[in-house]
């Protein structure tokens, strides 16, 4: 008799499966039509790094100390600064990263003494040449100095 029991149980499991798929038929679609709709990013999303714009100064606080440049395991950060006044601080003037080699480890963000680096929320980074992966952080901030 166990044979027929198996047949009935198996048959019922098939009906159960059909029920599951039928219910899915009228459930809302979960696909996001990407260029027209976009998913909300997770707060932990890491894009390439960018400068924090501080409210009180209206600009970044980069002092061109070069710690991020030295800390970077892929060696893809290039930062330069100048001393504007004799006894003043150094100020960062040029900051380039080669994002094509970045592994988003975040060591630069962690090591920054003035907390002026953060992860951007950029993810549409298509390009036609490898140089499109090079990002000018000063230009992104809207700050261009000679």
């Amino acid at each position: 008799m166990s044979y027929w029991k198996e047949v009935i149980n198996g048959g019922w499991s098939l009906v159960e499966g059909m029920r599951v798929t039928f219910r899915r038929l009228y459930r809302p679609v979960v696909t996001v039509q990407y260029p027209r709709q976009k998913v909300e990013l997770s707060p932990a999303y890491r894009g390439h790094i960018e400068f924090v714009k501080f409210k009180e100064t209206g600009t970044h606080k980069c002092v061109a100390c070069g710690q991020c440049q030295r800390m970077c395991p892929s060696n893809l950060i290039k930062v330069q600064g100048i001393k504007e006044r004799a006894k003043g601080r150094k100020v960062g003037t040029q900051y380039f990263i080669d994002f094509t080699r970045c592994s988003l480890c975040g060591l630069c963000v962690e090591v920054c003494p003035t907390k002026t680096l953060k992860f951007s929320r950029e993810y549409e980074l298509e390009g036609v040449s490898r140089w499109d992966g090079v990002i000018d952080l000063m230009a992104r901030l809207g700050e261009t100095r000679p």
Binding site: T21, R24, L25, Y26, R27, P28, V29, V30, T31
Partner: peptide
């Protein structure tokens, strides 16, 4: 269409 909607796609 049927395949799509069963898999929650359009």
């Amino acid at each position: 269409k049927v395949a799509g909607h069963i898999q929650l796609r359009p």
